[in-house]
Amino acid sequence: MVIEIQNSKFKIKNEKEEKIEKDIRISIRDLNIWYANTRAVKDVSLDIEKNKVTAIIGPSGCGKSTLIRAVNRMNDIIPGVKVKGEILLDGENIYDEDVDVVTIRRMVGMVFQRSNPFPKSIFENVAYGLKINGFLRKKEIAERIEQSLKDAALWDEVKDRLGDSALDLSGGQQQRLCIARALAVEPEVVLFDEPCSALDPVATARIEELIQELKEKYTIVIVTHNMQQAARISDFCAFLMLGELIEFDKTDKIFTTPSKKVTEDYITGRFG
């Protein structure tokens, strides 16, 4: 709410009346996804704003992971998956036939539930994406690696042992290494699929802080089982149930005054 003082009277303007210029990075349009005969995502339409954190919440099996995986076409590798509808990334449909999947995955990075570093050195883990994308000059690679590790808030902990195996890092460090690896190829969007569910509260807090910092440079989409986490870190929140988008709104609205009864029942734990 904006309050402006005019002729010594308080005039209160409703936010809705103001013209809001939204900067949409991803636009999901009438998306349907099938696993063989099961429709996992049903007619979902959703706009994801640039430089914001959008959280997707919902009970197990509601299609939230399927939905997030559709954003960088990770579902393509699963046999029997059928996708209908559009996902526009900066206005272009990533499901168009002439789209190069590798380019999409470079532009839309992903971090998974279990940290999955390669059994290589810390340096090689971050350099991997750069090398397969044709970066060959050593100086450039070294600079990118330093920047990515700094962005992932890991640099200070590993700068003196970049040659050590990534598998020697702690769980939280490994997850931040995977984030650095995703950031190295300079994506526009970073998808997080339950990035903290295998981490302890301290490591979780670090990742949450990191996500808040990353949104200055990247657009973030996060799937989480932890509703308090969605409340803490996201700007927008989408609630999915049985593949349908039930409610999508600003996070503070969802957690104080949700419009739908089902949303309320879910976030207050009355479900089932």
Binding site: M227, Q228, I254, F255, T256, T257, T263, E264, I267, T268
Partner: peptide, 9 residues
């Protein structure tokens, strides 16, 4: 309990 929505209100 970190209540939300109607519980928080």
């Amino acid at each position: 309990y970190q209540p939300a929505a109607v519980d928080l209100r």
